[in-house]
Structure formats: C-alpha cells, structure tokens
Design a protein around this nucleic acid. Structure first.
Lengths: 198, 198
DNA sequence: CCGGAATGTTTCCGGTGTAAAGATTTCTCT
DNA sequence: AGAGAAATCTTTACACCGGAAACATTCCGG
C-alpha cells in the first residue's frame, strides 16, 4: 500500500480500524506494530506518534471495542417493548457481541495489555456498562430487608452476562440447546421483589 | 543457578513451579522461555523436550492452576455445615483464589495461549468445575415447569462466580463494601424451588 | 555392553517493540 | 509572507523473543 503525501492525513483512525480488522481476523498474536503499519502503508514506528507505544494502541482498540459493544446492544433494543423485555434483549445483544468479536472483547478485559486508567477507555467502558444499568434501573429490584439491593442487583446482572459470555468464549460451556442462551432476567428477577417491570 | 549433573532430574516439574512463580510475580509478560530456563539453570531450548513449545508449557501451567484452584476451594469447605453453607464457602473460595492469583487464573481461561484440548488440561478443568457442581447437586434447584433446570442452575451459578471474579480481577468493579463479596446463593436460590438445602 | 532413546546445549534465524536521530510537512506567530 | 517551532513519518540500531537444527551427554533396555 502506498500513498502520495508524506503525511498520511488520518493515520490514527486508520490504525485503529486496521488494528481491529487484524485482531478479528488473526487474533492478538497476529497484531504487531509491523504488520499493522505495513497494512496501512507506514513505517512500523509511525504509530508511536499517536499512541506512544503498543499499550496505547491496544488501549485505543479496547476503547473502540467498548463503543461498538454499546452500540450493538443499543441497536438491538425493541423500542416499544416492556422494560424487562428490553433488558433481556440487551443481555442477548451483550452475549452475541462477545460471540461475534471474541478477540476484541478479550482485549477489552485485559488489564495487563491496556491502560485501564486512560480517560478514553474508562469513558467508553462506563458508557457500555450504562446501557445495561439504565435498563436495569427501570425495573424494581428493591428488597426492603436489604440495603444496596439496587447496586447489588446490577452487579449480579453484570456478573451473569459477563461470566456467561466469557465462559462460552473460552470454550468452557458445551454449545447445546441448554447452554445456547444466557440465563434470562426471569431467572433472577423473583429474588428482587418478584415484579417483571411492566 | 547451577547443577552438577548434565541431566536435571526433574526438569518438567521444576519448570512448572518456576513458571508459576514468575507468572505470579511478574505476570505473563515476564514469563519467557529464556527467563524461565535461566531461573531453573538450563538452556532456553531445554523445555522443548518436555512441553514441545511455549503453548505446551502454558497449557501445563494452566492445568496446574486448575488443580490448585480446586484444592483451594476444597480446603475452605466447612466440614459439618449445611449444603448451602458449603456451596457458599466454595463460591467465596473461588473468588478468593482469583484475587490471589489473577495472572494464573487469566491464563487458565486464555484459549488463545493454551491447548484447550490437551487431556491434562480438560481433566484438571473438569475436576475444578466438579467441586462447585457436586455441591450444587445436593441442593434442590428443580422447577417443575422447566426442564433442564438443574443444568441451567449450574450454568447460572458458574456464570455468576466466574463473571464476578473476572470483573473484579480486571478492575471493573470498584472495591467497596458492597462489591466486596460475591453475590451469594441466597440471591439466586429462590428462583429454583426456594429451599436452601438443609 | 552396546546401541538407541532421552535429555540438554550451542548456534542460528526471522520477528518483535522501542529508542534515537534525521527528513519532511504543517502550523503558528509576527 | 516568511521564519522558526511543532507535528508527523522514516531510517537505523538494539535487545529480546520463540523456534529449528545439529550436536553433546546421559540413561536404559536388548
């Protein structure tokens, strides 16, 4: 790949896009500064100007992953359904995204590879989490005998969907009819008041 | 480190032990064939005779990790407590192990780094899963209106504990009083019959 | 006891991330 | 408009890595 101008023009976003392409096609082991730079048509040290080092590049990829993750969940929400049905749809969207982009999702939760304090990453991660959180907020998880029941319910919800998705992604769960779908809210709602939110 | 004999004697287990030491001290990035071999006092190609390649070594480390994980849960079980209390103790032991050995646990669930079909690994992984499974079996998760409720309950249980542990390991959950403990069985039991097993 | 199998070493190779210095372009300020 | 600073990209060099191949040493079974 060649270009006419000495400067690329929009190298940063080109690197992120190409990086995600390589990541999804060949996995993390196939993603090197050299292979990435070659694909974009640039020397292997050019990314340093935009990302500092490999860690910065991976951080940008993870942040973009969180943005796509959130967008994917949002796009799959039925507009006129009940709150419970919308939350359930988001959970399915969550798992489907992990199954469609396993390497990207793995990177998003690899604190050893990524700058977990980078503002861009925490913003994107928080926004992604908020998709679930906003939907869960409209349901009634309250229990009178327990404080913090709301936040505890959200953590439980997130743990289920994240745990189920990663177990499947890592090949721990046999792919069968039983294990094909994420445990639904119906499996956990009754603990928190028993109402389904509509 | 030096040795007198040309042959090491028990290089395979020595490499596994040293490998886990490095992994826990410096993380995956600090674990190389060369650093590992140097610590044990052999050349960097010696491990090839026992593990084939890096992937084989990491597979052995992951298998050992599963064994220690299972042993850690077993060791923390109160002998004379109720089935529900024992399961809850196992869940806490599960999360505590991940918190104590984050890099090892990450490796155990890294299918891109490990031979997930290696007999030694699947045996160790299954044995670890069975600790939870055996305890859950003694509880009553049955629901008359739903087939597969037993296996579904186990998957839900495993998803919760794995998801919660990995979310904490990856720094997604703020460490606070609320998020400090894994959601207990009491949070999910009522969905499955309502009995607590004792 | 001897010949093959195991185990370990030496050497070499291509590939990797990063640092440093130089080339080129763009931006900023007067 | 022009000059100096800043941004962007390249070239070069380096230390480290995993793996392959040829060789040395030891062990073990006929």
């Amino acid at each position: 790949m060649e270009r006419k101008t000495y400067h690329h023009g929009d190298l940063k976003t080109a690197l992120v896009e190409a990086g995600i392409d390589i990541l999804e096609a060949e996995g993390l082991k196939g993603l090197s500064l050299r292979s990435l730079a070659a694909r974009v048509g640039v020397s292997h040290t050019a990314p340093k100007n935009h990302f500092g080092a490999m860690r910065g590049l991976l951080t940008a990829l993870a942040a973009e992953g969180f943005r796509r993750h959130a967008a994917h969940m949002q796009a799959g929400l039925p507009p006129d359904a009940s709150d419970a049905a919308r939350l359930e749809a988001a959970m399915h969207g969550y798992v489907a995204f992990v199954e469609a982009h396993p390497h990207l999702y793995t990177l998003m939760f690899s604190p050893d590879l990524v700058d977990h304090d980078a503002p861009e990453l925490v913003a994107a991660g928080t926004a992604s989490y908020m998709v679930l959180e906003d939907l869960a907020r409209h349901l009634d998880w309250s229990r009178k005998d327990e404080p913090d029941s709301q936040i505890r319910a959200e953590i439980l919800l997130w743990s289920i969907v994240h745990g189920f998705a990663t177990l499947r992604r890592t090949g721990q769960l046999p792919v069968s009819a039983v294990t094909g779908t994420v445990p639904g809210i119906a499996d956990i709602m009754p603990r928190f008041g028993g109402r389904t939110g509509d």
